[in-house]
Design a protein around this nucleic acid. Structure first.
Lengths: 354, 354
DNA sequence: AGGAAAATTGCAAACGTTTGCATAAAATAG
DNA sequence: CTATTTTATGCAAACGTTTGCAATTTTCCT
């Protein structure tokens, strides 16, 4: 039956002997339209199976009711959780979310910025690539007054709204925690320093060491993409020669898990012989044996903040002065077995190793 | 500088003293346009910072170059992995993906169908809610010849392209595996039967029992949303009275993990006293202790198939007869410790229990 | 050189909305 | 019962493209 016939407001207007504008206004609940006609119009719209054409509306008033979201990967726990929340929150407010992944490729991120701009998204939220240091491909959005917010992996020297975790505090907290648990030689496996959040964590790590009078050794820090494979390679180096560290601060849980496995192979007991702490509180952290101490970054909260920021910015009149505030989402250390205090009687293993 | 001025092809045309149509064609590499003008136009486009307006183009030729994707939740491993692949694959072909989540609410799913239709997506892929039995809210797409493909959680009696896992075989394989490992009393924790894939798994479970002459007992099957909490409650019931089962087939890994934990509390050894198999091969399955036997559903492969199906359908002329084929993605049993054969000397625990 | 064929470019309509302004109808006031 | 305000509706332009067809220019033959 309905072949080739997309019903439009014109059809409704004709059917009802009303003008197109009246129909449009009726459907949008414009106050100037009488209740009676509104009802009539809506009823007819229903009857004809009318569905508004978002593109036409969007073209007319240059608002797509769609916002863009760029993350490195949607299948990773942390960005996935944030995306979930953002998507749900914005949907409640009538926005669609175009979720895109850069796959941690700067090239793809740049291409995404272009094509997302073309779709005339109303706002953009970005968690950048590990390797994005130049953010100028997002200039178009700023230049055209399109709300832009960065989260988690945020730029260092680029004017924009930012929502990020407290990575300095995170690094500091983990390190101090390990120290308090008795560690004296702590390895830190960090992400690449092109990503500012790792810079902050390293800074936290260093300062915690300094505070506790533990010398910082360059050779005890590794900068790498935080994959399982890279973690294994790092382990090869770390345990190639004595002395072995008695603590590891891994900048994500995938890495922490890989290290744990490596220690198991070496018959190193965790936490007796070596303590391990991860980051991000991945669901696997509480499944593994031993369970892994990690930093909860409250992804749901971060997602909410990002969504709120987007909505807020979109409400600002285009003329409003841009305010580039920085929001910091708290972190919390989740203590688990991998860094637990070792009962006095059980320390022999540790002694042996030292 | 660029305040209020979105450059359009009209600007390019004026600047170059060309007609709008020539500019449009030049930008789209239309064969009728000379190489010289094409270059001129593109250069100017660049110079002016022109970005095509996808909405205008979309309105004109009613193609949004956007496809819709509806999944229960993007933060769950299985749909997240599939979404990742679909998104990447379609992006390669110049499509954007509007990823939406129903949060397993039928109501939300219905609303999504409506608003996605409004955005005039070029195609739609859906993994339905657990509770969707009536799929008529997707009729609009069929009626208007918009490619529609269901995956994973697919409809039973609804004409549409389908890509799904081999759930019957999955159920059968798991059950037979447990039987071969010596289990005689196997509990199955299934999802609700409103979702056809669980129907299939249960059928596989039953048939494997029958084949091996093990009586099927209604009381040994639980139908519930597969959350951790529900799994715990099921455990309460299962272990409330003897005899305890010697095998559990959990329809997802979250459930398998929860059961594992419960067994630990009861001092039941896995796999010595009871064997557990999960489903979907969640990353946690290989982290847990013991590691959990599970069914790999090859989500990446499924994602590719879905993407390919979408692209294929979009290429068909609108007049082409709809073919509603069903593609079945293979499964594979990943054997791990939770269902391993128990060495003869270690069976005492099992005997004790029996 | 003259004409036909081929290659390029331009005109103008269309896609389905929204909205400022003008108009018409109804309600109120004097 | 007219004049004025309030309320409800209609007109027409605009948003930025694409594309069938017509018009123009160039190329090629004889």
């Amino acid at each position: 039956m309905s072949k080739r016939t997309e019903k439009t407001i014109v059809d409704i207007a004709e059917e009802l002997k009303l003008s197109i504008s009246t129909v449009s206004r009726a459907l949008n609940n414009h106050p100037n339209i009488s209740v009676k006609t509104k009802e009539k119009v809506k009823k007819m719209a229903n009857k004809l199976g009318y569905r508004p054409n978002a593109m036409a509306a969007g073209l007319r008033n240059s608002r797509s009711r769609t916002i863009g979201l760029v993350v490195p990967r949607i299948s990773m726990f942390f960005p996935a959780t944030i995306s979930t929340v953002i998507q749900n929150k914005l949907y409640e407010h009538g926005y669609h979310v175009l979720i895109c992944q850069s796959n941690d490729s700067l090239e793809q991120e740049i291409a995404l910025a272009e094509t997302l701009y073309s779709t005339r998204i109303d706002a953009l939220a970005v968690s950048s690539t590990l390797y994005t240091t130049d953010f100028s491909h997002f200039d178009i959005f700023k230049d055209n007054n399109i709300p832009l917010v960065f989260f988690d992996r945020v730029p260092k020297d680029y004017q924009a709204k930012v929502v990020r975790g407290d990575d300095y505090l995170g690094g500091y907290t983990v390190t101090e925690h390990l120290i308090e648990k008795g560690c004296k030689d702590i390895v830190h496996i960090s992400g690449p320093l092109t990503c500012s959040l790792y810079v902050d964590r390293v800074a936290g790590y260093k300062n915690a060491l300094r505070k506790h009078k533990i010398p910082f050794k360059k050779s005890r820090v590794f900068y790498q993409e935080l994959t399982k494979e890279n973690a294994q390679q790092a382990c090869e180096k770390i345990f190639a020669r004595q002395p072995w560290p008695d603590g590891v601060f891994a900048a994500n849980d995938t890495t922490a898990i890989a290290i744990l496995e490596h220690c198991r192979k070496l018959n190193l007991r965790v936490p007796e012989d070596i303590k391990i702490v991860g980051y991000s509180n991945d669901p696997r952290a509480e499944i593994s044996t031993p369970t892994i101490t990690s930093i909860d970054q409250f992804p749901a909260l971060m997602g909410e903040r990002v969504a709120a920021a987007l909505l807020d910015l979109m409400q600002q009149p285009a003329s409003a002065p841009q305010r580039y505030s920085e929001e910091i989402v708290p972190i919390e250390l989740i203590e688990r077995a991998s860094s637990a205090t070792v009962a006095a009687t059980k320390t022999r293993g540790k002694k042996k190793v030292k």
